[in-house]
Amino acid sequence: MTSPIIEFQNVKKQFGELALFENFNFSVEEGEIVSIIGSSGSGKSTLLRILMTLEDIDGGVVRVKGEPLWHMSKGDRLVPADKKHLRKMRNHMGMVFQHFNLFPHMTARRNITEAPMRVKGKSRQEAEREAMDLLALVGLQDKADSYPAQLSGGQKQRVGIARALAMRPEILLLDEITSALDPELVDEVLDVIRNLAKEHSFTMLLVTHEMYFAREISDRVCFFDQGRILEEGPPDKIFVAPEKERTQAFLNAFISA
């Protein structure tokens, strides 16, 4: 077996008085699709945000592709990462946000081309060609010149996905990407992810409340409870025969909802 692409080793994360993660261990294999479920406040977003370098850690080590994310090796010691190291490591990850966070002053196309041009130094021509391919992938070729305010929620989120993909991340982080959408718009977004999942060309870590979707596309499901992974396994086990009482209660609440 190869070494994991993501590895949390004894990670500690604290928000003031709240010790959210303590001795937190977690790993993801390359190409694996992992769904994270659990009630609100259990630390699902924080896990993704630590990986996206939006939240730092208070102890332990996070490794991405074997390299410490929040640290740098100095001799045989690990010292806190500097900005340069973080910028290098960020290239491995891309994130899609619950509230899209599209840049409102840019067209859909510019939202997608801006980072490849400014960050990766691609030519405008190349970046725009790739943007059009990505817009086609998410079914929005005809919206290239629309501003976010002119798009529906589902369309915004598909641009959000295209924008993240444009940076060619190896790890895609999806944080409740359909939670802010009207029910009838959820499927058009999930379809895009479904297609990406089929190819298994990314490692995907997704926080979701869409249980059927999670069951369908995941290799593994993790149930989060108060900053711990209470139970994890293949979707057929977690959704059909969960062992822990809290997992059962959580899933039952979903079915009856």
């Binding site: 939006l54 290239n91 801006e114 980072a115 400014r118 993240a164």
Partner: peptide, 15 residues
């Protein structure tokens, strides 16, 4: 969220 999206896309602080 605008700042966070910009970080996630790896823009420099200046950009």
């Amino acid at each position: 969220g605008q700042y966070e999206a910009a970080v996630a896309l790896n823009f420099t602080p200046w950009s």
